[in-house]
Design a protein around this nucleic acid. Structure first.
Length: 510
DNA sequence: TGGCTCTGTCC
DNA sequence: CTTTTGT
DNA sequence: ACAAAAGGGACAGAGCCA
């Protein structure tokens, strides 16, 4: 297949809004793929490359896009893949050099598509999710069959290739397997405990810890740890590997959270733990500076038995049999009445955790699903901020002022200090209002940003304050989102750094 | 060597 | 990670 | 219910340059 055929299908996807329409287009595309192109093509139509990330993105590719078009003659998918393969192997500027001859062959549309593919921002209203549905449909599989196959091989491109070569029977025997990562189950957001209480009776609560999701596999002496996005992070956490090897069961898959702890075993801020997320050098040093402890909360597999179909309550019993040590288990409780539940939630927050997760006792483990059996409830703060600037949006927000720079008053109430940005929580209507009204207060602007006099007030929710190395205030709001535009409030009435310090009980500044 | 920019990976 | 929008 | 697309923050590592 020629690269331009792929680009044509992507354009068509962009032009269709219905999901069934998109699936139809993807199926047409799949039909045109040869066995050799299968993995490459399915990755591309999902908006990804099989090599993952190249360490070049929009900045690095920008200079290539500027090049003069010579003679566009669309390369094949396999040829494109070979260029990417070379770029992946190269270092530094060499990566760009390697791609130059490819760019010389590409038309304008193909270049733009290629860039979006490399940086992972193909915007066609279809991603791996829809491609998965299309593949299911293409081979006449039931959803169950696909889900079971996806359990063992959470990679649609690989599955498509397998099905193309060997047919349906190739996935018949697939299922959960130790040392092969499984998409972790996710929790749905709930506003409060009341929401959950209205609908469900039979559940337990767990402390929600602010750490890194870990899935630990053990097969005898071999231990592997996978992240939420199924990256192999085994080498980052040697203490967790050791811990897993000491457990009295030889073969298992455990689900949990790795948390950083201080010398009194209290959780450290996520920011501190983050030092270990991509750390490669001096692991021996960092593991003592920021020690990590596992907090397991589920088991997917024990002694080669797949437990995902068993009830949560039963799985937890099995988990507690494997991990005897209480300090390595996530605090859990079956509340007796609502007051009890609220007490547990507040206790969790007092201990420096994010909140609680509510889990239905009878629920199965549904890999990769954000189902209606796990609900997370996180502690939230709300303040009033002033808008200091707004950046022009992209994609469906093109032409609208979108990303807001937020400020609060300093302790003397004379100066506004920036504490972060947000684009979340804004409805189309609010975006339009901001675009209509903010420019009236413009002080100056550049290509991306309109800076305004601090007059428009917004109510902002956030979960935590972080120490910021880049903002003058020394502080950044974590997960900031707009709750509403406060046309009734003036900029002198907004919150201050002191308010922030009080409500989060974190000492800001130094 | 130290500082800068860019990138990827956690949340 | 959170939120809105659309099917 | 599900998928996609709007983009936020901190960190470490890779490269580059003075």
């Amino acid at each position: 297949m020629l690269f331009k055929v792929l680009v044509e299908h992507s354009m068509r996807l962009r032009g269709v809004s219905s999901r069934n329409g998109k699936i139809g287009i993807i199926k047409e595309f799949l039909r045109k793929l040869t066995a050799k192109e299968a993995v490459i093509g399915v990755n591309y139509i999902s908006g990804r490359i099989r090599q993952g990330k190249l360490n070049i993105a929009w900045k690095g590719l920008a200079e290539l896009s500027g090049n003069v078009v010579e003679r566009a003659r669309s390369p094949s998918l396999v040829q494109v893949d070979r260029f990417i393969e070379q770029a992946d192997a190269a270092r530094g500027q060499e990566k760009i050099k390697v791609l130059k001859p490819l760019f010389a062959q590409l038309s304008k549309e193909e270049r733009e598509y290629f860039v979006s593919l490399i940086i992972g921002e193909v915007q066609q209203g279809a991603g791996e999710g829809l491609v998965k549905m299309a593949v299911t449909d293409f081979f006449g599989l039931s959803n169950e069959e696909m889900e079971r196959a996806y359990l063992q091989k959470p990679d649609v491109a690989e599955l498509f290739s397998l099905l193309l070569r060997r047919g349906k029977r190739a996935i018949g025997s697939l299922g959960i397997r130790i040392l092969s990562p499984v998409k972790p189950m996710l929790a749905q957001i709930a506003k409060s405990l009341d929401d959950v209480y209205l609908e469900n009776d039979e559940f337990a609560l767990e402390h929600k810890l602010d750490g890194i999701r870990i899935q630990i596999h053990r097969q005898g002496d071999v231990v592997k740890i996978f992240s939420r996005h199924l990256k192999d992070i085994t080498s980052h956490f040697p203490e967790l590997v050791q811990n897993a090897k000491k457990l009295p069961v030889n073969r298992f898959i455990l689900d949990g959270e790795a948390i950083g702890v201080d010398d009194r075993r209290r959780p450290v801020p996520f920011q501190v733990l983050a030092r270990r997320t991509t750390r490669k050098k001096d692991i021996d040093k960092i593991r003592h500076q920021v020690p990590v402890v596992p907090q397991y909360f589920d088991v997917l597999c024990a002694d080669d038995e797949d437990l995902t179909g068993k009830a949560y309550a039963e799985r937890v019993r099995i988990l507690h049999d494997i991990v005897r040590k209480k300090t390595y288990l996530t605090a859990q409780k079956k509340p007796i009445g609502k007051n009890d539940a609220v007490g547990f939630y507040e206790q969790s927050l007092r201990r420096g955790n994010e909140g609680v997760v509510v889990k239905l006792l009878e629920s199965e483990y549904r890999p990769g699903k954000r189902g209606k059996s796990w609900f997370k409830i996180k502690g939230t703060h709300t303040i009033d901020c002033v808008i200091l600037a707004a950046e022009w949006g992209h994609g469906r927000r093109r032409g609208l002022l979108s990303n807001l720079h937020l400020g609060v008053l300093d302790e003397t109430r004379t100066k506004y200090l920036m504490v972060g940005k947000t684009f979340k929580g804004l409805t189309d209507k609010m975006l339009q209002w901001l675009t209509d009204n903010l420019p009236r207060h413009k002080v100056h602007e550049d290509r991306w940003t309109v800076f305004v006099k601090p007059v428009i007030v917004v109510e902002v929710a956030f979960n935590e304050v972080q120490k910021s190395p880049k903002y003058e205030s020394g502080v950044a709001l974590r997960f900031a989102r707009v709750k509403g535009i406060r046309e009734d409030k003036s900029a002198v009435e907004i919150n201050t750094m002191v308010d922030l310090e009080k409500m989060t009980k974190v000492s800001l500044r130094g």
